[in-house]
Computed example of a mutant assay.
Amino acid sequence: MVNKDKRIRIITGHYGSGKSEVAVNYVVQLRKETEDKVALADLDVVNVYFRSRERKEEMKAMGIHPIDSSVDAPSLDLPAVSAEVTTPMNDKSYQYVIDLGGDKVGARVIARFRGSIPDDEYDLFFVVNANRERTQTAEEVMEYIDEIEAASQLKVTGLINNTHMLKATTVEDVLKGQEVSREVSKARNIPIKYVACLREVANQLPEGLEGEILPIDLYMRDDWMM
């Protein structure tokens, strides 16, 4: 039940982790579980591909309010960001999901809004894809988490195992990522909140995995992409 998480959910992860896909699927599930207003902010100013803002009209049709940065300038150190980003932070009638850029530059964007993010109102979820460089081992994941926390001025409160090989993802891929995530969880006392994977793979997972299963539908990739 994603509506049990804190009101402001920030989702980050290394390039290629699938964090934007997770963010979109998360907010779609949240929309199903709450009668509150729901907003999705795309603050990923690093990755110019597969950003959640590309599904703005689809989000609106679902009753989700989309917010994106005011300029498309991924190469800038601290690009201009719409002031609308702060509205759902300060308006407690909103349930809020933020798709945050997955490196030090991207994470610094959220730091400017730190004063509008109370400690007791946010979750920062780090998406783990153990099939990607720099996040293949627990040590690499923890090093990356340290960088994100320092840049964002926020603490990671949960892990999302989203280990995948796009449409070729297998149960073995997910379990590989689960083991890495468990090592990080044990070392840092950060819970595994979700296990995200394609819906057809989710149906094959063994019982008893730590974390709630979050089935993924591919909103961010066209059907012809592998």
Results as ranks from 00 to 15, higher is better:
141 V>L: 05
144 Y>L: 13
134 R>L: 13
127 V>H: 06
151 A>V: 06
153 Q>T: 12
152 S>W: 01
122 Y>P: 04
133 E>V: 10
132 R>K: 14
125 F>T: 00
103 D>V: 10
122 Y>I: 10
113 F>V: 01
124 L>I: 05
107 A>W: 03
118 P>L: 00
142 M>V: 14
150 A>D: 14
104 K>G: 00
117 I>Y: 06
155 K>Q: 03
142 M>A: 11
109 V>N: 14
135 T>P: 01
155 K>W: 02
115 G>Y: 10
115 G>N: 14
154 L>S: 08
129 N>H: 10
122 Y>A: 12
132 R>D: 03
104 K>H: 01
102 G>S: 11
103 D>M: 07
126 F>S: 00
150 A>E: 14
112 R>V: 09
123 D>H: 13
107 A>N: 09
149 E>K: 08
114 R>G: 01
148 I>W: 13
120 D>A: 12
127 V>T: 12
143 E>Q: 12
141 V>Y: 10
144 Y>T: 15
126 F>A: 00
152 S>K: 02
113 F>R: 02
114 R>V: 04
105 V>Q: 10
145 I>T: 03
142 M>Y: 09
109 V>I: 15
155 K>S: 04
133 E>C: 00
130 A>T: 06
154 L>G: 05
143 E>T: 04
128 V>C: 06
131 N>G: 11
129 N>I: 03
117 I>W: 02
151 A>Q: 09
104 K>R: 03
146 D>P: 11
106 G>D: 12
132 R>N: 04
116 S>A: 15
120 D>Q: 12
123 D>T: 09
129 N>V: 03
108 R>P: 00
121 E>S: 14
122 Y>V: 04
143 E>L: 07
124 L>K: 05
106 G>I: 10
99 D>H: 13
139 E>N: 08
118 P>H: 01
106 G>W: 12
104 K>D: 05
139 E>S: 10
101 G>C: 08
117 I>D: 02
140 E>K: 15
122 Y>E: 12
150 A>L: 13
148 I>T: 13
145 I>A: 03
150 A>R: 14
144 Y>E: 14
155 K>I: 02
147 E>I: 15
114 R>S: 07
126 F>V: 00
109 V>G: 07
136 Q>I: 00
111 A>E: 13
147 E>A: 15
138 A>C: 01
129 N>T: 07
154 L>C: 07
136 Q>C: 02
145 I>C: 04
116 S>Y: 14
146 D>N: 15
142 M>G: 07
135 T>H: 03
102 G>C: 11
155 K>Y: 00
126 F>D: 00
117 I>Q: 06
120 D>H: 13
123 D>Y: 07
142 M>D: 12
135 T>I: 02
147 E>P: 01
120 D>P: 04
110 I>C: 07
116 S>W: 02
144 Y>R: 13
133 E>H: 06
115 G>P: 04
117 I>V: 15
111 A>Q: 14
99 D>Y: 08
144 Y>F: 15
102 G>Q: 09
122 Y>M: 12
103 D>N: 15
112 R>C: 00
106 G>A: 11
155 K>N: 05
131 N>D: 03
114 R>N: 08
106 G>R: 14
114 R>D: 00
112 R>D: 04
144 Y>M: 14
119 D>K: 14
113 F>L: 12
133 E>P: 01
141 V>K: 03
127 V>S: 04
102 G>Y: 11
154 L>T: 06
